[in-house]
C-alpha cells in the first residue's frame, strides 16, 4: 500500500502541475477577497479564518473529482477493484486519499500562514489557523473521496461531487473555523477535539463508503 501511495504522489507531482493549480486557485481567491469585502482591516482580520477555511475547502474539492477518474480512464481502477475485497478496497481508498491530501492539500496548508498574515498580521492567529487546517482538512478529503467514488463514472462529475459533499461537511467547516478562533484566543479547546473526532470519524466512514460505492458501481 506504500506502493500505491508513492505512485499517486509521483503521478500527482508530474501530472501537468495539478498540485500547483489547486494552490494557485487558493492563493488567487484569497488575494481577490479584499476586492469583494473592502480593505477595512478589522473586517478582513475578523473574516480571515473563515475565508481561509472556506477557500481551502473549495480548493480541496476542486481537485478531488480526479481521485478515481484518472485510474478509471487508464484502466488501473478495474485491476485494483478486481483484485480487492471490501476491506482491502477501504484501505486502498484511505491510502489514495492520504496521497491526495499530502500532494494537494499540504501545499495549501503551507501557504495558509502567509495568506493569513496578509489578512491579519497576527502570528498567533496564523499558527492557530494552520493547526486547525492540519487537523480538519483530512476530514474533507475523506468524505470527498466518497463523492469522488460516486461520481467517478460520470464524465462531468466535478460540480456534482461538490454538491453532494458540501452538505455533509458542514460540521467540519463549523468546528474548523471555531477551532482556529479558539486556538488563537486561547479559550476552551472543545471545538478542536470535535474537529479531531470528525477527522477520525470521516477517516473511517468515508473510505468504507467510497469502497462500497466503487465496488457496486463498477460495470
Amino acid at each position: 500500500m506504500k506502493n500505491l501511495f508513492i505512485r499517486d504522489i509521483k503521478a500527482g507531482i508530474k501530472a501537468g502541475g495539478a498540485i500547483g493549480t489547486s494552490l494557485l486557485f487558493f492563493i488567487s481567491v484569497i488575494i481577490l477577497s479584499p476586492f469583494a469585502l473592502g480593505t477595512d482591516k478589522t473586517l478582513l482580520a475578523q473574516a480571515g479564518p473563515g475565508l481561509l477555511w472556506f477557500f481551502a475547502l473549495l480548493a480541496v474539492l476542486l481537485g478531488l473529482d480526479r481521485l478515481f477518474q484518472t485510474d478509471k480512464e487508464d484502466g488501473s481502477l478495474d485491476i485494483i477493484l478486481a483484485a480487492g475485497d471490501f476491506s482491502s478496497l477501504t484501505v486502498m481508498v484511505l491510502v489514495k486519499s492520504a496521497a491526495h491530501w499530502v500532494s494537494t492539500v499540504l501545499p495549501l496548508i503551507a501557504a495558509a500562514p502567509v495568506l493569513s498574515l496578509l489578512l491579519n498580521p497576527a502570528w498567533r492567529q496564523a499558527a492557530a489557523l494552520t493547526a486547525s487546517l492540519v487537523l480538519g482538512t483530512p476530514a474533507i478529503t475523506f468524505i470527498g473521496a466518497l463523492g469522488a467514488a460516486l461520481t467517478a463514472a460520470l464524465p462531468r462529475g466535478g460540480v456534482l461531487l461538490a454538491v453532494l459533499v458540501l452538505p455533509l461537511i458542514i460540521p467540519v467547516i463549523i468546528f474548523g473555523t471555531a477551532a482556529s478562533v479558539a486556538l488563537a484566543a486561547g479559550t476552551a479547546l472543545q471545538p478542536l477535539y470535535f474537529l479531531l473526532a470528525l477527522t477520525l470519524f470521516f477517516g473511517l466512514v468515508g473510505p468504507a463508503a467510497a469502497a462500497l460505492a466503487l465496488k457496486f458501481t463498477a460495470e
Binding site: L146, A153, L168, P171, A209, F216, T217
Partner: peptide, 23 residues
C-alpha cells in the same frame, strides 16, 4: 449503478444528519 450510488449516499447522509444537527 444509479440505485447503488444513491443508496450509499442516502445511508451516509443518514449517519451524518445527527452530526450536522449537533454541530
Amino acid at each position: 449503478t444509479a440505485a447503488y450510488a444513491a443508496a450509499v449516499l442516502t445511508l451516509i447522509g443518514f449517519i451524518d444528519i445527527p452530526i450536522i444537527k449537533f454541530s
